[in-house]
Write a protein that binds this DNA or RNA. Structure first.
Lengths: 157, 157
DNA sequence: CAAGATTGACCGATCAATCTTT
DNA sequence: AAAGATTGATCGGTCAATCTTG
């Protein structure tokens, strides 16, 4: 076995570390300022990006890397709080769309500046433009084509 | 508000993506080959790194970025499976040490090559040495001094 | 039967409360 | 009292099973 040398270990350790630290920080800031978790924010922004007609449950689950049941339950909370509504699809009555309520859109628009500001303060603005590009390129190599196990929440068995 | 431009968005999105994808892949590979989750592996390796006398629960929880109760429960499983033992501390009878059992050490030594191989295949070996150093440097800037909100001093060097 | 979505059982984490020892 | 660790309640996620529609 070829173990990790010092450079390799440093890169690996920091990647593992950032995953908790950065998300945790952004989550706490968003919660404190707007009472919305990062998980909720990601749901809202994903629905919003899909346009006015909303998004199929299946597609939403895939975007969020969530299992179908996981999505159902995450949506339950947002529906209960009145930020999202389920809207049944006329052409295929099996499916349903998740759409933002006016309240949901309002809350998202309130929260978005806080979120972007957090991403800037804790990540983007700490790096030079060259570092940013290098980072995106490197992460792109890593995330692309991960042996077929990427994307789907439940996959190879 | 200054929104994210294309480069910035790309870096941010990929960082978010990798957190699920890479960990998920390594977890599945480790599970399939040795029946050990990444979570378990991290416990074992942390105890192992602490040397033969083991590690106090509190210190272990801090290393793993886990709450005290979370650690108790994670250890419960490993103790039940015979990989870790709790050993009460003679000088302070409130505390206890987590130590590896011989079986635990054996399983860790079996799993380690698989783990390192996975880290190489899915991350390290996809990057050049320059990319690796740049990535570590950039992540170091991000992880260090995150407003003090999330314990753990970064292992900067 | 297959596909979209939900439900039941369970797992792993957290906070708040508790028990023991200092 | 305060500190180390565990326990009870609960939350958010997964898988397997289910229900409905195509």
């Amino acid at each position: 076995v070829r173990w990790l040398d010092e450079d390799e270990m440093r890169a690996w350790r920091r990647l593992m570390q950032i995953r908790f630290q950065l998300m945790g920080t952004l989550d706490r800031e968003l919660q404190a300022a707007h009472g919305i978790s990062m998980a909720d924010y990601e749901v809202l922004i994903t629905i919003s990006d899909a346009g006015d007609k909303g998004l199929r449950m299946t597609d939403l689950a895939e975007s969020l890397l969530l299992s179908p049941s996981g999505l159902t339950r995450r949506l339950d909370g947002l529906v209960r709080d009145g930020l999202v509504a389920r809207q049944s699809c006329p052409s295929d009555r099996r499916g349903s769309y998740a759409v933002l309520t006016p309240e949901g859109r309002r809350r998202l628009e309130e929260a978005a500046p806080t979120h972007v500001d957090g991403v800037r303060r804790h990540f983007i603005d700490r790096l030079s433009r060259e570092q940013l590009r290098a980072m995106a390129d490197a992460l792109g190599v890593v995330t692309s084509d991960d042996g077929g196990s990427c994307g789907q929440p439940s996959d190879d068995r």
